[in-house]
């Protein structure tokens, strides 16, 4: 290959690298958001279902005298505390996913640049 062909080849490589990076960033971002929304929705639905089920169980236990009123009240409070815990965790997981996305972007850009040069 003469120098001119090498330069042309390099330019072509960079052009395809640009397209590849663009597409992969879109894929990475879409996947991260999709998983986050899916997990948060699943968790929220599971929490709602589980809270309803527990409320019925605890009310029956109170009626049967298995637990007293103080224990019943504490269990209800604990469910509320647990919901706060879930909300806090979801916020943390969202931050963690953003961080993983950032790291994936750095890797993608660095690897694409290296691949295009070599």
């Amino acid at each position: 290959m003469n120098p001119q062909e090498i330069i042309e080849q390099a330019a072509a490589n960079w052009h395809s690298a640009a397209e590849e990076v663009g597409q992969k960033i879109v894929d990475l971002g879409a996947d991260a958001i999709r998983r986050l929304v899916e997990d948060a929705t699943t968790d929220g639905q599971a929490q709602l279902k589980s809270s309803q089920k527990k409320l019925v169980e605890w009310t029956a236990a109170l009626a049967e005298g298995t637990i007293n009123r103080e224990e019943y009240t504490h269990l209800i409070k604990s469910r509320v505390s647990l919901l706060k815990f879930h909300t806090l965790t979801e916020a943390g997981i969202a931050q963690a996913r953003i961080e993983l996305f950032r790291k994936a972007l750095i890797n993608l850009i660095t690897n694409t640049a290296i691949k295009a040069i070599t």
Partner: peptide
């Protein structure tokens, strides 16, 4: 012109990686 575009690309990629890091 194509070569110049490629060089701009390299710089953009390097800058992006640096900013993200």
């Amino acid at each position: 012109i194509r070569v110049a575009k490629a060089v701009v690309w390299v710089l953009t990629l390097m800058l992006s990686a640096t900013v993200l890091s």
